[in-house]
Amino acid sequence: MADLISLRGIKRHYDVGGEVVRALDGVDLIINHNEYISIMGPSGSGKSTMMNMIGCLDSPTEGVYEFEGELVHEMDDNQLASIRNRKIGFVFQTFNLLPKATALRNVEVPLIYANISKSERVKKAEKALLAVGLSDRMHHKPNELSGGQRQRVAIARALVNDPSILLADEPTGNLDSKSGVEIMKILDSLHDDGNTIILVTHEEYIAEHADRTINLFDGKIKEDRQTKKRKRVVA
C-alpha cells in the first residue's frame, strides 16, 4: 500500500517583523496507514506548525507534501478545505465545539460541508456519538457536558466523516487524569480498529500510548523511534 502521508524537505518560515522564524526547517517524514504516532518537543520546537501542516490548515513555504498520493502543497484553499473535510479529523486541546449547538449538531457540522442530506447526517452523527459512549447526551449543549464528555463529542465529530487520519493536539491537556485516561482508551481502541492517529503532546506518559515517537527540536526532527508495541487486541 502507498504511504498515507509523505513529507519531503518541508519548510515553514514566517516573517515576523522583518525577522524570519523557521518554525519547520526541513522535515522529512513518512506516515503509513494504521500508525499510532506521537509528536513531542518543547515549546517553540514546531509541534503546532507540524500539526497544522499535516492537518492541511497551513501550507509549506518549501517542500513536498503528499497525502494519499495527492500533492497538498500545490492545493488552493478550496481543495485544502475539502481534504480537511474528507480525510482529516481534528481533536483539539480546548475541544473547540460550537458552544450554542447540541452534541448531535456539533457532530453533524462536518457532514453539512460534505453535502450530506439531513436524515443521513443525523444517522451518522448518532452512530459516531454511540461509538464514544455518548448516546444518552446527544441533545446536550457543551456547557451541559463534562470536559471528558466534551472531548468525546470532539472525537465523534472528528470520526464522523470516516477520515484517513485522526490528529489529536494535546487531547488530554485540559482534562483531569481520570477523563484523560478515558480519552486515551478511546484513542487506543480507535487505533485497534484500524485508524491512523497522530498525537501531539509534551507528556511522556501520553506519548507512550503511541507505537512511534517523533521528537522535534528547532523545527527539525531530532529523534524518530519505535516505542514499545502495545499489546494488540486481535479479533
Binding site: 478545505a81 481534528f90 462536518p110 460541508y113 465529530r157
Partner: peptide
C-alpha cells in the same frame, strides 16, 4: 472551527 472541519471560503 468550521474552517478546520471543512468549510470553504
Amino acid at each position: 472551527i468550521r474552517k478546520a472541519i471543512g468549510a470553504t471560503r
